[in-house]
Computed example of a mutant assay.
Amino acid sequence: MKEINAVHTFVICAYKESTYLEECINSLNKQVSVQNKKSIIVAYTSTPNAYIENICKKYNIPLFIGTGGGIGADWNSALAVVGTKYATIAHQDDIYNSDYGEKIITSFENQKDLNIVFSDYYEVDETTNVRKRNLNLKIKTFGLKLLSLYKNKNYQRRIYAFGNFICCPAVSYNMTRLKDFKFNEQLRMAVDWDAWERIMKYPGKIEYIPSRMMAHRIHEDSETTNNTLDKNREKEEYLMFRKYWGERMTKLLMKVYVNNQKGNI
Rank of each mutant, 00 (worst) to 15 (best):
L239I: 14
D125H: 12
A195V: 09
Y244E: 04
K251F: 11
N259I: 11
D99F: 09
D194L: 00
A14D: 04
I61M: 00
L135I: 10
R157N: 15
I199M: 05
Y44Q: 02
D99Y: 13
M213K: 05
E102W: 12
P169H: 14
E234V: 13
A190I: 10
H219A: 07
S18C: 07
N154T: 13
I89P: 00
T45P: 01
E220K: 12
V34F: 10
K151Y: 06
V171G: 10
Y59Q: 01
S222R: 04
N232F: 05
Y100K: 00
G204Y: 11
F241C: 05
M189D: 10
F183C: 04
V258Y: 11
S107F: 08
K16F: 01
M200E: 09
T224W: 12
E109D: 06
T127P: 08
G263N: 06
D221R: 05
G204A: 04
T9N: 02
S46Q: 01
Y173S: 08
N26E: 12
F108K: 06
D192Y: 03
Y160V: 09
S148E: 08
T84H: 11
E22W: 02
S172C: 13
S107Y: 10
N227W: 13
K112L: 08
N164K: 14
F165L: 15
P62E: 13
M175Y: 15
D93Q: 05
K153Y: 09
T9M: 01
K201V: 05
T176H: 12
K262F: 06
Y121T: 09
I55G: 02
K231M: 07
V81H: 02
L63T: 08
T128L: 14
V82W: 01
K58Y: 03
E123V: 09
C167H: 12
V124M: 12
K16I: 06
Q186M: 14
L144D: 10
I55E: 00
L137Q: 14
Y100Q: 04
V82F: 01
G246D: 14
I105C: 04
H91Q: 13
L146G: 09
I116R: 01
H216D: 02
A73C: 02
N36P: 01
M249R: 15
D113R: 14
E53T: 11
M249E: 13
G66H: 00
E223K: 08
S107R: 12
F181V: 13
L21R: 06
A14Y: 12
K112F: 06
I104F: 08
R248P: 00
L149C: 11
T45I: 01
Y208H: 08
I61E: 00
L114V: 07
N260A: 08
N134H: 14
Y173A: 05
V117P: 01
E17R: 15
H216Y: 08
V32N: 15
A195W: 06
L146V: 13
N174W: 11
L135K: 15
I265L: 07
N227I: 11
N97C: 12
L21E: 00
F165G: 08
V34G: 02
C13F: 10
N227G: 07
N136K: 15
R133P: 04
N54W: 00
V124R: 10
A80Y: 07
E197I: 09
N60G: 04
